[in-house]
Structures are given as C-alpha cells and as structure tokens.
Design a protein around this nucleic acid. Structure first.
Ligand SMILES: [Zn+2]
Ligand SMILES: [Zn+2]
Ligand SMILES: [Zn+2]
Ligand SMILES: [Zn+2]
Lengths: 433, 433
DNA sequence: TAAAGAGGTCACCAGGTCAC
DNA sequence: GTGACCTGGTGACCTCTTTA
C-alpha cells in the first residue's frame, strides 16, 4: 500500500499559465514612478497565492490580489456559512484558479495561511524583499522550488508503484491465463477463412437450421474470454491504485464500469495490432494472428472496420508508452469525489506523477505530447461511441455471438439501471475462474 | 529505473525581462558601507518589551522594536484620544495582533516605562551593557527558545533551532542509549561469520531442531533495538519542529509513520557505511563494524545487497549535509493541511529556511544541488519500495528474525488498517524503556 | 571617533468607499 | 456581493545628533 497523502495539498504551479496570465499585463518600467496610491504595480511580488492573479501586496500574511484580500476580510467579518458548490471541496485545484465557489476560495485563503494574526504592515525589510525576489525568479525562470521538488519525490514513488502494479497486466502471459488460448484463437480464425456470409445471412441460417456456418461465434467466444480476463487484471490494478481502496466495493465497481471506454482504451493500447495489405495483424503474447479484410467485412461490416483502421493507424503513429496508457486509465478511475476527499488527493498525486513523467520523458515540450495524448483519447472515445451505436443497432447479432451479460453491458450503450446489472454479473470479474 | 530530473528547466522568454530588473533599485550592497545601524545584529538586546518582536535598540527608556518606538512617538505628538476596543484594557496580554487596540498598546508602552525624559542617547555605558546581558540570560534560562537569534531573519532562526534539535539525534551516543550495544553487535557479527546457511536453511533448521545455527537473529535483534531508539529520537525531533504540535497526538503519530521511507532516509543518512572490497563497513558512534559480503548474501540475498550497494554508493557520492537530511525529513513531516492552517505556515517557514540554507551554502547554483538531492530521495524511495516488496515476500523469514510488531509494520508494505496497529504499538516509541 | 538613538521619509497595508 | 481605489496609519531604513 502506498503511503497516503492525507489531507495534504499538492499545489502544482502551472507556470506556463502563470506566465501568460499574470505578467503580461505588467509594465515593469511603471513601477519606478513615485507612489501616489494604487498606480504602483507590485511587479516584484509573487502572484496571488489564492487565485494566481497579480498580487497587490502582502495581505493577512500572504501575497494576494486585492480581490482575495477583501474577500477574506469580508469572510471573517460576515459570512462563514459557506458551503461548497459541488460538494467536492476541490474547486480551487483546477487549472484556471477561477472561483465560483466561496467555500473553496475561503478554504484556500486559510490554507495559504491568511489570518488576522499574521498581518504584517509597513515597509518591506531587505529580507522580505529578497524572499519575494527569490520566489518570483523561481516562478519566472521555472526553476524547481522545494515544495515542487518534494512533490516530485512523491510523484516518482507513485509512478514506480503504479508501473509495478500495472506490469502485472502488461506483462501477463495470456496463454497461461486461458487454457488453449492460441489454439482456440487460431482454429476460430481458420474457421472464418473463406466465409462470405453477412451478419444477416449468419443470423438467418442459425435461425432456420440451427447451424453456425463459420467460426465467428467461436472467435467471439474466445476473444471475449480474453477480454474478460484483461478486465479482471485491470480491475485489480485499479483497486491497487492510490485511492483505489477509498470507495466501498459496490461503488467502486460501478465507477469502474461507468466509463468502459477507458477500459477498452487500456486494453487496446496494450496489444499490438496493425493493418498490412488488407490483412489485420494482431499479437497475443508473442504469437501473431492474421485476419483478412474480406472476412472481417462480412463478419462485422465496413463501418466498424473503418473505425478499427483509423484507431489502429493513429495508435501506431502516437505510440503511447506503457506509463502513458496507465496514467490515462488511472486518472479516469481515481477521480475527485465529494464524499471521499481522499480520492481527490489521490487524483492530484496521479496527476502530478503523470506530469512529472511527461516532463522527465519529453522535457519542456511535454505540453505538446500531453495535447497529442488528449487528442488521441478523445478521438478514441469518439470512435468507441460510434462503435457502441453500431453495436446497439446490431444488438440482435451480438446476442447470437455471445450469451455473456457483462459483455453485452460492456459493448452496448448503457441503459438506466445498468448499475444493478453490473453488480449482479460482477462476480465473474471479481472472482476469476 | 526512474528518469531523473534534467537540468533543462529554464524556458521562459519573460525571464530575461524580469530577472534583469533585479531589485537593484533597492541597492543591497550600497547600503552596507555608509551606514551601520541596521546591518549590525543586535544579538545582545532583549526583545521589545511592548510587543516581543526583535528590539532595534533602547528607545525612550526601554528596549523596543522600531515599530513600537515610532508608535510611541506618534502617540505623544498626535493621538492621545485612544480608546480600548473592548473596554477591558487587556488587549496586549494575549497573542492578539497589536494593531487591534492602539489604546492598550500605548498603555503598555507607558507601563514599560517609555517616556521622553528617559531618553538615553549615545554609546552604551558598561552598566547598560551588563543590564542588557543580565536580562537576556534571564530570558534564555526561562525559555528554551533561542532569544539570542531574536534579530536574525526568521529563516536563520528556523535553521538554527531545527539544527539544535536535530543534533540530539545526530550527536547521540548510541552506546550510551543501549546497554552493551557494541559488544552485542560485535558478538552477533562474530556469530554470523563463516555461516553459509541460506534463509530457507535457517528457517528449516529452526523449524525442525529449534536451534538457531548462527547469530543472525541476535544481529537482527540488536540492530532493531538500535533502529527503534533512532526512531524514538526522530519522533521527538519531529514533534519539536515548528508546527509539530499543531496536530493531535494520534494524527501526528499516524502521519509520522505514513512515510517510513523518510524515517529510514533520515537514519540511513546519519550513519557512515560503505563497501570496501566485498566488506560492508558501518560505523556506530566511533566504532567500526565489518561484515563480509558472503555472509550477508546468505543472511539476506543478492537482490537486497544490490539495493544496499547502490544506496551506499550514491549516498557517499552525494554526501548530504546534516541540514539537508534534516530539512528533507522535516518537510515530509510538516506539510500543509487544509484542516490545520498553521501546518501550512510552518511548512512555508521550513521551505524558506531550507532555500536560504541552500542558497548560502551553494550560492546561486543551489537549484542544481536541490535537484540532485531530490533525485537521490526519489532513488532512495524507489529502493525502499523494492526492499519492502522483498520483505513482504520474505515475511516468514522476518517472523523468524523479530517478534516486534512495530518493526514488522515498519518493514513490510502497509496493509489497510495499519493506523490502528501503529497506534496500538506506539507506546514503545513514545515512552522509551 | 565610533556607537547609539531621535526623528524623518516613504513604501507599505487594513479598512472604508463607491460604482458596478 | 465584488473589487478598484482612497485614507489614515505603520514600520524599515536613513540622517543627523549626542555621548561614552
Ligand atoms: Zn487572488
Ligand atoms: Zn467548492
Ligand atoms: Zn514592539
Ligand atoms: Zn484594548
């Protein structure tokens, strides 16, 4: 079990954001003009520790903007009965530091150390001026400060821990997990070869004669067995994530299946597959399997194949690392929650770990990589969405191919009440074999 | 292996702009020559008799700070119509901030004997000097704080204070703390010499014959006794840190053990150990002990030894100072907390103190050093993580080596509910011997 | 003649005001 | 309710004067 960051705030200062928003508007030369009230721009101050706006000074023991200063004062003298808007108590941790939740803004003020007895007025001492200057130059030059670095150390451990845990999934030998996997896959594919029956033909023939004219059902069966085993592994990984034990069992299961896109994502990213001359090539463990486009087209149809091809092309172009896949998946599972504040902390740690991973891997260009990943994820989700629509449209066909209720839930758009279906059928995942 | 933080971190285009406009306008260097008044640290002065801030001198017949001095003057020349804010005339007695009630501040000034006719100008006479000295030593003997640092910057006070407190750990003579320590260590090592039984052999033999064939259990016992005593010292240090008394007891204990990595870190960094020709050399107090690689390999195994060697090599290469170890440890214990805002303030102070320490020790290049330190911390944590996995795997062996539950908690990955175990077993740490 | 404080200076902030 | 802008203190640093 990873040590917990209980009740701790990980603040990752988004310096790029900072630079663009905070300092552009400032006119350095203007600072030298003699003081006449409010014109003096305190450009030698670090930004508002509460909202990241340019600070107007040191108020109640913290560098804050005029707005946060007066907000804090009014909070002290009048309103203390704030309640968080969305109940998560995390409204301030977003990138933009814009508050629409008074409760969280006030909490942030307090946690930054604002308080009546920390008031400091009068001229700055040399010491304080130097502190400000140091802080500022750390931010401006993007040099790592100590709090950053301490968080980095934690982030590294999170990465090591998750990577180790995730490797049980990525390094699994599926042939050992599933009896006769290769043989069954191979023979199922063999049985599909040369078949040119469409979905409709297939269903009609089964309906009328009771005979399955090719191997598509065997193929669906064995591949779904594999898929299910994969989900089992991912579920275990998810549970072992920091924060993964905060939720009660049932809630966690429901959350886990709430976004099956990401399960599909993690699985899809962990297998090798590509198209080569109208031949779909995929690898399980170290075995390669081939399926021809023609058969797949009859097996499924052109629409699905085009999704498949696009995904496969973009996937191979982007070439996600194991860690990237892992973090994208983990961040989808471990999300801030109103009821379970530790989930929020865990989410921040994972976030930071991911950022740190990207930073160390891609250097200062990591934003670009992150953008590419995000684009790809949303592209992938879009395709999965269409795939779901397609499956829904072909629900009858799906029923011919599998009896497993969980798989149907997994592949078809969720209907109201799906949570109960999942829970009813979950033991298949929870208790393997 | 983890990727390490690279040196390429400065990227902002704005930096030149801002950085070039250092606060030269305030001219640090220039002030020092013509004027001696403020640079001289008045370390022989008792604190301000009105507000307890560092005094700047003897003003109007009393040792006061600059602020109280000028407040008194202005009160004389202008405002005498102060009225106590809450009518109780006791506002200065509490820790309330002094701006709250001018009336009480002025009354305090008067009651401390401030007056125009008590003005003393010019060089100190011998009596006045002695007077100050006596007052000071009285304060020192009453309070364990460091009043002679009163006029230093807060960062320095924090550093000196922590250093003094930490030295109780680093300068401890363990031979005095633990009865017959050296003898027991020495004889335990002697008993392991020449033994080539593996972990499994050892367990089997104990199991079957009840005989412990070598000294490994004695060695484990005495070294864990030492370890526990070290933890006791570190716990006391942690409690004495600024902010260390903010948390309720139980929460603090749990937080303290939440990151046993950092406890191990602090301890490991405070001992001398290295490898020399397949000989593991470690020092306790001023005594050297040797263990041969072969025996250690049987005692533990190759995996653990390789961690040990890597750690020892990098540790000795980096050569952390006592202060660095101390701050890394302290910053892990004293962390910002939304629930306890004073922890956040304490964390800021420690940060500042650490920054300041690095700056004065390594100059403007201190970021490089900081980066090295954090990379090492990450590396160390990673190894500890693997060590924990190893211990978990060899839990049965550990059970043969120690009965102490706390030690087991300390060495094995934490399981859910560990907090209760820690609390149940903590009195061993809290009440030594 | 160097050390030390009184008084001056002006950067600095809490709280108030007012237009939105 | 918010936040830009004043007003009336405040206090760090300086200059000038006094004194051991
Ligand atoms: Zn703000
Ligand atoms: Zn909120
Ligand atoms: Zn004072
Ligand atoms: Zn009063």
């Amino acid at each position: 079990m990873l040590p917990e960051l209980s009740d701790v705030e990980c603040k990752s200062e988004k310096s790029s954001h900072l630079l663009s928003q905070t300092w552009d508007s400032y006119d350095m030369e203007a600072t030298i003009t003699p003081y006449t009230g409010f014109e003096v721009l305190k450009s030698t101050l670090p930004p508002c520790q509460v909202c990241r706006a340019p600070a107007s000074g040191y108020h109640y023991g913290t560098n804050t903007c005029e707005a946060c200063k007066v907000f804090f004062r009014r909070s002290l003298t009048k309103h203390t009965d704030y309640r968080c808007k969305n109940g998560r108590n995390q409204c301030m941790s977003s990138d933009d530091y814009i508050f629409n939740c008074k409760s969280c803004r006030f909490k942030k003020c307090v946690s930054e150390g604002m308080s009546r007895d920390r008031i400091k007025i009068g001229r700055y001492s040399r010491e304080r001026r130097r502190e400000n200057f140091n802080k500022l130059s750390e931010i401006i030059s993007n040099k790592p400060s100590i709090p950053h670095m301490m968080n980095f150390a934690d982030a590294d451990i999170v990465t090591v821990y998750c990577r180790e845990s995730f490797s049980k999934f990525t390094d699994a030998t599926w042939g050992k997990e599933i009896h006769n996997l290769y043989e069954r896959l191979y023979s199922a594919i063999l049985e599909t070869q040369g078949s040119s029956w469409s979905k409709e033909d297939f269903m009609d023939i089964v309906e009328v004669t009771g005979v399955e004219i090719d191997g598509r059902r065997s193929f669906a069966e064995i591949s779904q067995k594999l898929l299910k085993r994969n989900i089992q592994f991912l579920y275990k990984f998810a549970r072992a994530l920091p924060g993964g034990k905060e939720l009660p069992n049932e809630k966690f299961v429901v959350d886990f299946f709430n976004y099956p896109e990401y399960i599909k994502f993690a699985i899809a990213m962990s297998y090798n597959f590509y198209w080569s001359n109208d031949e779909f090539v995929f690898t399980v463990d170290d075995k390669q399997f081939l399926m021809h486009k023609n058969e797949l087209e009859h097996f499924l149809d052109k629409e699905v194949l085009s999704y498949q091809m696009e995904i496969s092309e973009r996937k191979n172009k982007l070439n996600l690392t194991v860690e990237e896949t892992m973090f994208v998946f983990a961040l989808q599972i471990i999300k801030p929650s109103a009821q379970y504040p530790k989930m929020g902390v865990a989410n921040q740690r994972l976030n930071l770990a991911f950022t740190r991973y990207l930073q160390t891997t891609y250097g200062n260009d990591y934003h670009k990589r992150l953008r590419d990943i995000i684009n790809f994820v949303s592209f992938f989700n879009e395709k999965i969405y269409f795939l779901k629509k397609w499956t829904k449209k072909n629900e009858r066909y799906l029923n011919y191919l599998t009896d497993c209720k969980l798989m149907k839930l997994f592949w078809i758009e969720k209907q109201p009440g799906w949570e109960y279906d999942i829970l009813d059928n979950f033991q298949e995942i929870d208790e393997p074999q």
